[in-house]
Simulated assay, not measured.
Amino acid sequence: MKFGLMVIGDEILSGRRRDTHVDWFRKLLNDFGFSLGWVQILPDDPRLLVRQLKQSMEAGERVFSCGGIGATPDDHTRQCAAEAAAVPLVRHPDAQALIEKQFPDSARPYRIRMADLPAGSRLIPNPVNNVPGFSINEHYFFPGFPDMAHPMGQWVLQQYYQPDSNPQRELSLRVYGASENELMPILQKMVDDWPQLKLFSLPRMGAVSFVELGFRGDEAVEQAFAALQQELQRAGMRFELP
């Protein structure tokens, strides 16, 4: 099972903030036997956000989204999610109650806006300040703050998904003294023989150069990896396991 990740905010693209979501969500998904299928780092641009969210919703993808669900004028994600899902933005009564309880003297007129969510949304609890995130169409929306978004993402997986009992595997080795061009016949044979697996080839340049070759996929990875080693031995290639 693969998930997409959207990191939303001009501050990431401008360099004012450094992203910490990609590595964290990759590890979280791996712990559940899932994988990170793609990442998008997006600006606070409503037209672009609607387009990207509509595309992933129509494709039936599972997506984590971090950022842009606050109450300030540059936070567009709640409205854009509603437009992408073709539903109105409405005041969620349970979200309203949580915000009013957390901020009894300052919920209005601004913080209460964070209770305006796409119609039909389910709430995601926020363990830091109790202002919830929300989900719709298997898209899960969190604040941009890592200390909030990360435990909220973990809660989503624990609440709605079962860990994969047969997670994808990955095996690789290092080939020395050969370029990718010289390895091409072997690579093509591996792709032809094992089309259900993901073959990867990563050249590394440095004091000691090598090409990292491997497979990613189901239980057939071990057989394919053994076949790769046999082909390398037959070709007289020098390799070792990392």
Rank of each mutant, 00 (worst) to 15 (best):
I112D: 03
M190G: 08
Y160T: 02
A59E: 08
R62Y: 05
E231V: 06
A86T: 06
D23N: 14
G9N: 03
E58N: 10
F34E: 02
V191G: 11
I12R: 00
R108G: 00
L49E: 05
A235C: 02
D10H: 12
S56V: 15
P203S: 04
V128L: 08
V128K: 06
M114F: 04
S14L: 04
M148T: 03
L213N: 09
L117A: 03
Y110S: 10
W38E: 04
E240R: 13
Q196L: 13
K27S: 15
A235P: 01
W194N: 09
V211P: 07
F141L: 04
A81Y: 01
F239L: 06
N126W: 03
D147N: 15
I12Q: 08
D192K: 14
R51Y: 14
D74P: 03
R17D: 13
S106Q: 14
A227C: 04
V131S: 00
E212P: 08
R113T: 09
Q188E: 14
H139S: 09
S201L: 01
M237W: 07
D94E: 15
V131G: 00
P146K: 06
R51V: 03
L36S: 09
Y140N: 01
P46T: 05
V221P: 06
F34Y: 12
M190A: 10
I69N: 02
M148F: 10
W24T: 14
I186L: 08
K198I: 13
E170D: 13
W24K: 11
C66N: 08
L28N: 12
P118N: 09
Q159C: 05
R216P: 07
I69M: 05
D218E: 09
D75Q: 03
P242E: 04
R122H: 09
L183N: 06
R78P: 11
Q96E: 13
